[in-house]
Amino acid sequence: MYHILVAEDEPWIRSSVVEMVNRIGEGTITLSEATNGEEAWALIQETWPTVLITDIMMPKIDGLSLIQKIHELGIPMTYIIISGYDNFQYAQKAIRYGVTEYLLKPVDMEQLREALRRCEQNVNNLKEISQYMSRFQQLVNAFGEAAPQTAGRKMSELIDSVLKLKYINPAARLNLLRLFEWKLTGLMNEMSPGQSVPSIPADAEDTAIIRHFNQLADIMIMHYAKQNKTNTNNIIKRVCDYIHTYYKKDISLTEMAQLANMSISYFSSWFKRCTGRTLVQYIQEVRIEKAKQLLLETQLKNYEIAEQVGFATQPYFIRVFKSSVGVSPNAYRKRMWL
């Protein structure tokens, strides 16, 4: 299973692409959604997708600037660009960053299927590296909950396993470690702006590298221990109350991060740590609960319910409902009425 991030600022196009990808993937993928380039950049640091499907023209950070940032940091990823602008200059610039798939709006499902199929080889090449990125993110997410000794041991085991990778060259292995360090440093600066954070020593031996990451893990654990739990509870309540009130809207990660007075990147990992769900998953759960109420209390049709609870399209609503509840909306209504 691999992870795909869809970055698109127009809700109905984003929902349509997500629905097509889900139908093409048939359970072999996981998905994240971003409403602008800034959100996409934050989610990349949180979910480490293997495929990015992005619009070119987006608020905050445009698609090509986003790909440039990914390329410059050496984050392993493959790309599919979608755009309403048939402009060869965009395609030329995209090629510099390794983009080979360029689709015009409205996106055709068969063209998207073929683009994803052509991406498969790159995805397979990135699979093991991506697994290390996922393991690292799981460890970061557990810092606030795991015992210090456990977190330190897991960090040592992860770094040691990266150092023992034989199938990639030393430069690529070092780049993976640099990405880990960059992520930890960014989080520390979020929690304690201006904190001095050491870097991996040049030409360090393996034991020194492991010790370096253990020190970073210790600093992270210390920061989490200092967080005010009461304040955290107040913030998460405010965010969740907002979602329960405005679930019909196209609620964005940017909007919720501003409400919590956090950066997008930090809010994304913080929200998941507090609730056990991503923001999109939490919003969908709220919408599905509201949909279940409407199915039982009204005679509204599926497309009307989808619109009332905030889903952009009826097919998307039906797929999410069935995935969450286990049966289609119609089957749920019949079963509960019986």
Rank of each mutant, 00 (worst) to 15 (best):
323 S>N: 11
13 I>H: 14
228 N>D: 15
135 R>V: 07
217 A>K: 02
70 I>K: 01
161 S>V: 07
142 A>Q: 12
329 P>D: 08
7 A>K: 02
101 E>F: 07
224 Y>A: 09
165 L>G: 00
205 E>I: 06
126 L>Q: 01
177 L>F: 05
31 L>Y: 10
156 S>F: 11
1 M>L: 15
231 N>W: 08
313 T>Y: 02
302 N>L: 09
27 G>P: 10
114 E>K: 13
54 T>M: 00
44 I>S: 04
110 E>H: 13
300 L>S: 10
210 I>D: 07
116 L>W: 04
315 P>Q: 09
91 A>G: 04
4 I>V: 15
164 K>D: 09
3 H>T: 14
126 L>F: 01
57 M>L: 08
56 I>Y: 05
123 V>F: 01
138 Q>V: 01
52 L>D: 00
261 N>M: 12
202 A>E: 14
221 I>A: 07
54 T>R: 04
282 Y>H: 05
55 D>M: 02
251 I>F: 12
207 T>Y: 12
192 S>V: 01
291 A>S: 09
187 L>T: 00
264 I>S: 11
191 M>R: 10
126 L>R: 02
139 L>E: 08
168 I>G: 05
141 N>V: 03
123 V>H: 01
311 F>W: 13
166 K>E: 11
241 D>F: 03
116 L>H: 04
152 G>P: 00
206 D>P: 08
288 I>N: 02
147 A>G: 05
323 S>Y: 13
130 S>A: 14
240 C>L: 06
204 A>P: 13
311 F>G: 03
286 V>L: 08
239 V>K: 04
206 D>W: 07
64 L>C: 01
282 Y>L: 02
209 I>L: 10
23 R>S: 15
192 S>L: 04
333 R>P: 07
66 L>D: 04
47 T>R: 13
119 C>W: 04
